[in-house]
Design a binder for these strands. Structure first.
Length: 434
RNA sequence: GACCCGUUCGUCUAACGGUUAGGACUCCAGAUUUUCAUUCUGGCAAUAGGGGUUCGAUUCCCCUACGGGUUGCCA
């Protein structure tokens, strides 16, 4: 029997990290076993569905690199893949239940008659869990068809998994208690149930349940802040799953290679923005300088900075200095434009050294007298000027950095000198010395 | 309330019933870089509590506490 997994979001809001991770685990499992990954849209809640939400789900998955084999835009042998178009299937299976006398009418709605017995599920992550359906007060017969003729989640979910021949259902732990209901439905329908794996939920840094509006909740916010997809995929994979080794930087292919449901944890995990940012930095480091510059380009343009000519070279100078692409404009703005801000804290630090002003003025003069201008020559001149005034080179390097860039950190000072050129260096030094 | 799942450094996690309980993020300290960052080295920091079983328990069992989930004509 071939592996077939599915991601079945309802288009009622943007794609959030919990959903993205569910999609990722289903994707990894399918790819690892050479199976199929199906995208099914559970759009039965007409009141809350929106077209924007549909698009957000597709674009979020595309961004993450979770390509599906069947569903929206891909076709497939088990369509349609939108629940809103599958009513005929539901009607057909509902008739089966009615013929078997497993449903009864109640106030115009139809309830499914549970078998009153203990139901045991063998979850691939949680192990054996038994719910006793002899306790009717705890497990009342559930409505599967509303009085308006539409069907509820439990029923359509089961029918679709059955019709689409889903072999493994990997979903959030919030569905654990639903599973015995689904198992009973499969049994009543006379069909074998898929294997289930319930993965723990994702919590906020403070331990509360992560929901809409929380930081880091919307996948769409990640690219806006300058996260790249491989880093986000890597991060959410590590939330609740362990490679069982000390390695932790993984590409999608490596995750596919190493993923297994047995290594999924049972305890809910908290979302840590710091570690996510660190992972982003690690993945940024793996990019070629050209790829890094290209990835950062939109952020720099959005900041209103010119990206012609020297931009790619300039951007490459900060590749190992930023954690998020959104930090790039701030890091290189002073190299692309003469219009930049001074960091008060950095300026204050320079003012702490009374000799700095004279040293900077002297350096400007020496720069003008320097023969050939090059990054190395200029850098050496800083040392010479400092020594000439009886100071250590390090004492002049920081003030020079602040005078030229307005900041305490940034590209290598030699790179700054070379990229800026003699005239701009002299002008900025003199302006700052005043 | 009832039912279910869970609990190892602040966070993510590793550890055939036998380890000085390991790694990573954060933080701190050194080294390197004539500068910031990177990098490297070192440091701080954990088995929720109480009972068992066992020669021996982070690991198995029970109780308590805490956290999460489910209890809809939502999905």
């Amino acid at each position: 029997m071939s592996v077939r997994t599915r991601f079945a979001p309802s288009p009622t809001g943007y794609l959030h990290v919990g959903g993205a991770r569910t999609a990722l685990f289903n994707y990894l499992f399918a790819r690892k076993h050479g199976g199929s990954f199906v995208l099914r849209v559970e759009d039965t809640d007409q009141a809350r569905n929106t077209e924007e939400a549909r698009e957000a789900i597709f674009s979020g998955m595309n961004w993450l690199g979770l390509d599906w084999d069947e569903g929206e835009g891909m076709g497939g042998d088990f369509g349609p893949y939108n629940q809103s178009e599958r009513k005929a299937n539901y009607d057909r299976w509902f008739e089966v239940l009615r013929e078997k006398d497993r449903v009864y009418e109640d106030d115009g709605a139809w309830r499914f008659r549970f078998e009153r017995k203990p139901v045991t599920m063998n979850d691939l992550v949680c192990g054996e869990v038994t719910i006793d359906y002899r306790d009717e007060s705890n497990t009342p017969d559930m409505v599967i068809r509303r009085s308006d003729g539409s069907y509820v989640f439990h029923f359509v979910n089961v029918v679709d998994d059955l019709d689409m021949k889903i072999s493994h259902v990997i979903r959030g732990e919030d569905h654990l208690m639903n599973t015995p209901k689904h198992l009973q439905l499969f049994e009543a329908l006379g069909a074998p149930a898929p294997q289930y794996a319930h993965i723990p939920l994702i919590l906020n840094p403070n331990g509360s349940k992560m929901s809409k509006r929380d930081e880091g909740a919307a996948v769409g916010d990640y690219p806006r802040q300058g996260f790249i997809a491989p880093a986000v995929v890597n991060f959410i994979a590590l939330l609740g799953w362990s490679p069982k080794s000390d390695d932790e930087i993984f590409t999608m292919d490596e995750l596919i290679e190493r993923f297994s449901l047995e290594a999924v944890n049972r305890a809910p995990g908290r979302f840590d923005p710091e570690k996510c940012a660190w992972l982003n930095q690690q993945h940024l480091l793996k990019l070629s300088p050209e790829a890094f510059a290209a990835a950062a380009r939109p952020y720099v343009e959005a900041a209103g900075l010119p990206v012609d000519g020297a931009y790619p070279e300039v951007a490459a100078k900060v590749q190992e200095k930023v954690r998020l692409l959104g930090e790039v404009p701030e890091a290189i703005g002073f190299l692309l434009s003469d219009n930049f801000e001074f960091d008060p804290a950095a300026v204050e630090k320079v003012h702490g050294n009374p000799a700095a002003k004279d040293l900077l003025a002297a350096l400007a003069d020496d720069f003008e007298k320097l023969g050939d201008w090059s990054a190395d020559a200029a850098k050496h001149q800083i040392g010479d000027t400092a020594k000439g005034a009886g100071a250590k080179p390090g004492q002049l390097m920081f003030p020079t950095r602040v005078a030229l860039s307005g900041k305490a950190g940034g590209p290598d000072l030699g790179d700054i000198l070379g990229l800026l050129g003699r005239d701009r260096c002299v002008a900025r030094l003199r302006a700052f010395a005043k």
